[in-house]
């Protein structure tokens, strides 16, 4: 789905969302009049230091508001921007700051919902969509932690061999389905139905603790993570 159609379907009552330089900003209104902040990335942008700082500033401004209005984060990006300048300036801090800002806003009562409608990869994915409290996706989204050609180069395996291996496990190959099976994606929305209803239904669910590892276990994409994390917590807390 295109961003305009998505926004129209999400906010039939209207929205004030602008896209500039690949950054999405504004707000929309649900059918019951509830205000939804919208902050995100568009046009497959590579997330650099300026973008991250700009997004974080918006998120922090929302966090200061006491309206408890949710933040919707539509994402269509590539990876972080790969450049000498970005790394020289400490891109890791900018991306981490964005992730922290999202978590702070959530802590301050603003639910954060990622909406993956295009691509995303690597550090950009971690700092945005994966830092939200709930991540949903639309069909056609194409997240890619690591592209297969790069993997082929590093692992010295051919693309064909990698594609064959990808059939046996969702754990490394790109794509929405693979990622969903590891528990990263809470649900994939149905574009044929009004998105506004699907968002309202999601907001009606209580926001719980991070349960992505349990989801990955159920969906058999991450067989061990939930149990290992739980066992560490158990061993660390049994003393006192």
């Amino acid at each position: 789905m295109e961003l305009d159609d998505i926004l129209a379907s999400l906010f039939p009552a209207g929205h004030e969302v602008r896209v500039a330089h690949g950054r999405i900003a504004g707000h929309g209104v649900l059918r019951d009049g509830r205000r939804i902040h919208v902050v995100g990335l568009a046009d497959g942008i590579a997330l650099g230091v300026e973008d991250a700082a700009s997004l974080a500033a918006q998120v922090l401004a929302i966090a200061r508001q006491t309206d408890a209005a949710p933040i919707l984060m539509p994402i269509d990006s590539s990876s972080q921007r790969m450049s000498r300048r970005d790394e020289l300036l400490g891109l890791n801090e900018y991306l981490a700051h964005l992730a922290k800002s999202l978590l702070l806003a959530e802590q301050a009562g603003h639910r954060t919902i990622g909406l993956l409608y295009g691509g995303s990869a690597a550090g950009a994915f971690i700092a945005t969509a994966l830092a939200t409290g709930t991540l949903v996706a639309l069909p056609g989204a194409h997240p890619e932690v690591m592209d297969l050609p790069s993997m082929a180069r590093v692992t010295k395996l051919s693309l064909d061999v990698l594609r064959e291996k990808a059939k046996a496990t969702p754990v490394f190959a790109p794509g929405l389905d693979n990622l969903a099976r590891t528990g990263a994606v809470h649900a994939t929305w149905d574009p044929a139905q009004p998105l506004t209803a699907q968002l309202e239904a999601l907001l009606a669910e209580p926001a719980g603790d991070d349960a992505r590892d349990l989801l990955g276990q159920q969906r058999q994409g991450r067989p061990k993570a939930a149990a290992i994390a739980a066992r560490v917590v158990h061993e660390a807390t049994r003393g006192g």
Partner: peptide
């Protein structure tokens, strides 16, 4: 080799 699990 376990990119999705590692990323998450």
């Amino acid at each position: 080799q376990e990119a999705n699990a590692g990323e998450l």
